[in-house]
Simulated assay, not measured.
Amino acid sequence: MKIVDGGLLVVEQSPGTESELQRLLHDISFATTNVTTERDCLSKIRTSKPDLILLSLDELLIDVHSLIREILKIDADLPIILVSVNGDEEKLVSLLEAGATDFLRFVGGQSALLKYVIEKNIQRHTIQEDHFAAEEKLEDLNYKLGENLKILERDQQAGFRVQRGMMPAAPMTFSKVTFDHRIFPSLILSGDFIDYFKLLDGRTVFYIADVSGHGASSAFVTVLLKSLSRRLQNDYESLGLKTPGSILVWLNRELLQCDLEQHVTMFLGILDCDESTLEYSNAAQFPAAILSGDDRAEFLEIGGLPLGLYQTPEYDSRSVSLPIQFTIVMFSDGVFEIMPQQTLKAKEEHLLSVVKCGKRNVDALAEQLGIESTRDVPDDIAVFTVAGFG
């Protein structure tokens, strides 16, 4: 190792000719600067920033303890090697305790040992400097990361307020039918979405949707769903959509035109309170909606492909007569993630049994299924109920 930048600063009482120590340092190619006074030593440290200090204790007339203290005030990590022929052990210990980093008993002709000790101390100092630099860089990166996370969280919170504002009011009652919902996001923003609105002909459209993925990318798609809801509400007649299945075909076409990376599952129903009927269709939304009433509960099972994936999917529509008092209960598939049952079938059966036992409002369902008490849900969970009371 040849020291080029700062070099070595040698502090020794000059005999007027080149010392043995100076000669050996020259022979092993170390660039050196020699000083004899504390003032010159400290001045060189400030201006030249040496890599290492060699203190030749023999015949040195300055206060070495004081010198070490002053050196460390300027550079607390600068290596200081004590060199002596007959160093007093008690004094050497005292100087090492004061901040010197190493000691070499020098009797002349020890070029290999001298080179090794110097290089090891410089190497140790370099590693330490690199470590400190890395720590400072890491602290700076952590600070910047923390600031960026704060900005991201503020943006996400703003997005959450926007997303919450897009949701219909809950609970809301149309013609003796009450719609209620709650969404428990895994992150601040959610890919689960719910909407319901009246058509001009008096019927009510409602749906629960689950956008693939989590967080902001999925939440952005819910903004698109809300926009499509408004178009459907305002232009239903001109769009010529007669059934829930035809609505899903239209939604699929609109999503494909946006060239999204996400797909959407959805259960969609049209409620006719005058005729006490429910028409419904499903685009792979799972679990199936549960219809309860007249002391019974059953899944409204119907197949269908997700929205936004296939060019020409077909969606069946079914119709069911509703009792005077009924509840339609819907969940997003995130509910399965927190349920203790081992199989999917067992989880479905448990959902059905909870509804059969009379847990049919949103808060009661969330409490019974443990959603309310789960602190960090692994996936978005939506709970949506539509309840008619005659």
Rank of each mutant, 00 (worst) to 15 (best):
R105P: 01
G269Q: 10
L145C: 06
M266Q: 05
T173G: 06
Q311D: 11
V211S: 06
L187C: 03
E12G: 08
K44E: 15
F267V: 05
L241C: 09
I338A: 11
L291W: 13
D294M: 07
D333L: 00
F132N: 13
I3L: 14
L248N: 02
H125N: 11
S238I: 11
L55I: 11
D379E: 09
K91I: 09
I81L: 11
M330Y: 00
L271I: 01
L95G: 11
I62L: 12
I371Q: 01
K176Q: 15
N86Y: 05
D210T: 10
T101S: 08
E348I: 11
V4K: 13
M166V: 00
D88W: 03
V10Y: 02
A169C: 04
A76V: 03
L57K: 05
K356S: 15
T101Y: 03
Q156G: 09
S276L: 10
I371S: 01
Y143C: 05
I80N: 01
G7M: 07
F299S: 12
I62W: 06
L365R: 01
D140E: 13
Q285G: 02
D210Y: 08
N148G: 06
L92F: 11
F286M: 07
E90T: 14
H181T: 00
E301G: 15
E119C: 12
Q13T: 12
N142G: 07
A382N: 03
M1E: 15
P50R: 11
D192Y: 00
V386I: 13
S281I: 00
A170R: 05
K49E: 15
P287W: 07
T37H: 08
F184R: 10
L24W: 04
D51H: 11
F160A: 14
G240K: 02
A169S: 08
V335N: 04
L260I: 10
L256F: 14
M339R: 05
L268M: 08
L268F: 02
F326G: 02
V4G: 10
L52P: 01
F174W: 14
L241Q: 09
E298G: 15
I80T: 08
Q285S: 03
H181V: 00
D155Q: 04
E153W: 08
E129T: 05
E20D: 08
A112M: 14
G245H: 06
G165E: 00
G87K: 06
D51A: 15
S321L: 01
I328N: 06
L96M: 07
A289S: 14
D294F: 00
L189R: 01
L54I: 10
C273P: 00
E136R: 15
A219V: 01
T33M: 13
A219T: 04
L200V: 13
L224V: 15
S317P: 02
K73S: 06
S321Q: 02
S227I: 03
S111I: 01
G308H: 06
F336H: 04
G245W: 08
L96W: 02
L307V: 07
K2V: 12
E261C: 05
Q163D: 04
Y310V: 12
T327R: 01
P50G: 14
Q157E: 15
L67G: 08
E314T: 14
S246L: 09
G165W: 06
P244Q: 07
